[in-house]
Structures are given as C-alpha cells and as structure tokens.
C-alpha cells in the first residue's frame, strides 16, 4: 500500500515564498492554502508513489528536520497525509 497523487487530477499551484502555497485541484474545484510540509509531500509524490516510511525519509531531507524526533516527525507526517487524503489530493492504494 502506497500513497499517491489522486489519478487524473491536475493540480496547479503558486507560491510567493517558501512558507505558504496555494493549490488548485481541478477535480474538486477547491483551492487550498497549504504549509510547506504539505506542499513538499505533494511535490515528493509527484516523483513517485511512496509508502509512509519512504515518504517520511524523503521529507526529512527536504524539510531538514534533524532537530525533530523520528517519532514525532512521522506522527506529524501521518496526520498530514490523512488531511491531504480528506481534501482528495492524495489517496492510499
């Protein structure tokens, strides 16, 4: 089981700084203001589908999260993945 971007959705995004990103999902027609961690998840999944463990590793690098404990970090990522799933941007399959 891996996380992947919802198939056949075309997500457009824009950002003026690295902290906040505006995402538009053409399937739901919704616009979301996402923080950088959520944006990085989506950018990471654009490369390839990943299970939560690999995703956490990849993100730790992207977000330079050395000073966070592994447990807390993966807890946060799990939470984030569920949020993105609720928004319909990613799915677990």
């Amino acid at each position: 089981m891996e996380w992947r971007l919802t198939p056949s959705q075309a997500v457009s995004y824009c950002s003026w700084d690295d902290d906040e990103w505006v995402f538009y999902n053409n399937l739901s027609g919704d616009t979301h203001l996402l923080g950088s961690a959520a944006a990085q998840v989506l950018l990471e999944l654009r490369q390839s589908s990943l299970n939560a463990l690999h995703l956490t590793e990849a993100l730790a690098q992207r977000l330079q999260a050395e000073n966070v404990t592994d447990k807390e970090f993966s807890f946060q990522i799990d939470h984030l993945l569920n949020e993105l799933n609720t928004l319909g941007l990613i799915e677990f399959s």
């Binding site: 457009s12 995004y13 824009c14 003026w16």
Partner: peptide, 9 residues
C-alpha cells in the same frame, strides 16, 4: 519584484 512560482503537479 515578486518571486512567484507557478506550476502544475
């Protein structure tokens, strides 16, 4: 003046 990036996933 702005540094916007815009793209598609």
């Amino acid at each position: 003046n702005n540094h916007m990036y815009a793209n598609e996933l």
